[in-house]
Design a protein around this nucleic acid. Structure first.
Lengths: 180, 180
DNA sequence: TGGGTCATGTAACCTGTTACATGATTAG
DNA sequence: CTAATCATGTAACAGGTTACATGACCCA
C-alpha cells in the first residue's frame, strides 16, 4: 500500500526519499503516516521491481542525494492498483477496542476519556487546515489542476470523520450522564 | 492491542482459542478482526507473561480443548491498559490513499468507485445489526448488565462511521457530476 | 458423500515501529 | 551555540496476513 502511495507521489514529480517523507508528513499524514526508515526500505524494493529508478546526484557541501523517478512499469502498476482490488474499510480501531471494555472502569473515568477524545479531535481538526493549505500550494504545480479535487475530497473526509468522533463522544457522555 | 482484547474477553468468561475467534468474528469484527492463527500465537505469549492460564480439557470423540482463563496479573494488566496511553485514531486508510491519486483516472471510473463504496457500506451497515443482536444475547450473561452500554456505543460508532462514508461518497459523486 | 462447525496449530511472509547512527548547513 | 532541516540509512522487533495441515462430528 505504501508502495503505491510512493508511486503516486513520484508520478507527480521525481523526488528524494526525504521529500517523499515530507509529502506524507504535510499532506497525507491524516490518513497515512510513513517513517523515513520505511520509505527508504520500500524504495529499495520498488527499485528491484523496476517500478522506480534511482539517479544519484552529487552535491557540493551537502551529502549526496538519490532522486527517484517512476518508470513506465511503475505507471502501469499504479493504474492497475487504482482499478483493482477490494474495498476495505479500516478495520482496526484502538479507541473502540478500549471502549468495548470500559465496563471494567467507573463511569467517571470513562466520561473523562470521552472528554479527552473530544479535545484531541478538535485539535486534530485544526491541523487539517494545515494539510489543506499544503494542498492548495501544491495545486499550482499540477499540469491538470482539477486533479486537486481528489485531494480536497480526502481532506473533506478527514474533517467529517473527526467531527463524527466529536459528536459520538458527546453522545456517549450524554448517555453516561443520564445513567447517574 | 489484540493481547488486551483477548484479556478483556477472558475477563468476562474463560474460553478456548476457538471461542475467542468466534467472539471477534461475531461482535468485534467491525472494529477488529483476528484470525485464529494470530489468536493462538498471542495466547502463547500471554501465557508466558503469566496473564492467562491454560487448562487442558480432554474430550471423548473430539480433539482436546485448551480452556484459557485470566489470572490476577492479567486483570491488572487489563486495567492498566485501559487507563494508560495515548489516544490514537486509526491512521491508515486504504480508501483515502486511492482517492488521493484518483486524478490519474477518468471521472467516470471514479464515480463508479464511489457508487461501489456506497453499496458496500450499505451492506456493511446491515451486518452491524447482526453484531447488535449478538451483543443483546450476550448481555444476559453479564453480572452487571449496564456494562453492555459500552458495547452498544461501539456499534453506534460503527453505524455513524458507515453512514459518514455513504454521505461523503455521495458528496464526492455530486461534485464530480457538477464538473461534467 | 460433501460441506460446515469445532478445535488446534505452524511457517513464511509482509508491513509497520522504534531506536540508533551520521554529518553538514542554516537560521535564530 | 544550539536547534532545526536536509539527507541517508540499518537493525531489531512487533504485529498482522496467507497458506497450509489435521481430524472428527453432524446435517442434508
Amino acid at each position: 500500500m505504501l508502495k503505491h502511495g510512493i508511486l503516486g507521489l513520484l508520478k507527480y514529480h521525481q523526488m528524494t526519499g526525504y521529500e517523499i517523507m515530507t509529502a506524507f508528513r504535510d499532506s497525507l499524514c491524516f490518513f497515512w503516516n510513513a517513517q523515513t526508515s520505511q520509505i527508504y526500505r520500500e524504495l529499495q524494493v520498488l527499485e528491484t521491481k523496476g517500478w522506480v529508478e534511482k539517479t544519484p546526484v552529487p552535491q557540493q557541501s551537502k551529502p549526496d542525494k538519490n532522486i527517484y523517478s517512476i518508470t513506465p512499469e511503475g505507471r502501469r502498476e499504479l493504474l492497475y492498483w487504482l482499478s483493482e482490488g477490494e474495498l476495505s474499510l479500516p478495520s482496526r480501531n484502538h479507541i473502540l477496542m478500549k471502549v468495548f471494555f470500559f465496563g471494567e472502569r467507573s463511569r467517571e473515568e470513562n466520561i473523562r476519556y470521552f472528554e479527552g477524545l473530544k479535545e484531541y479531535c478538535e485539535i486534530f481538526l485544526q491541523s487539517l487546515d494545515a494539510a489543506q493549505k499544503h494542498i492548495s500550494e501544491y495545486r499550482a504545480f499540477l499540469d491538470a489542476p482539477e486533479q486537486a479535487v481528489y485531494w480536497e475530497m480526502t481532506v473533506d473526509y478527514g474533517r467529517r470523520n473527526l467531527q463524527g468522533y466529536i459528536d459520538w463522544a458527546q453522545s456517549c457522555i450524554d448517555r453516561l450522564e443520564e445513567m447517574k
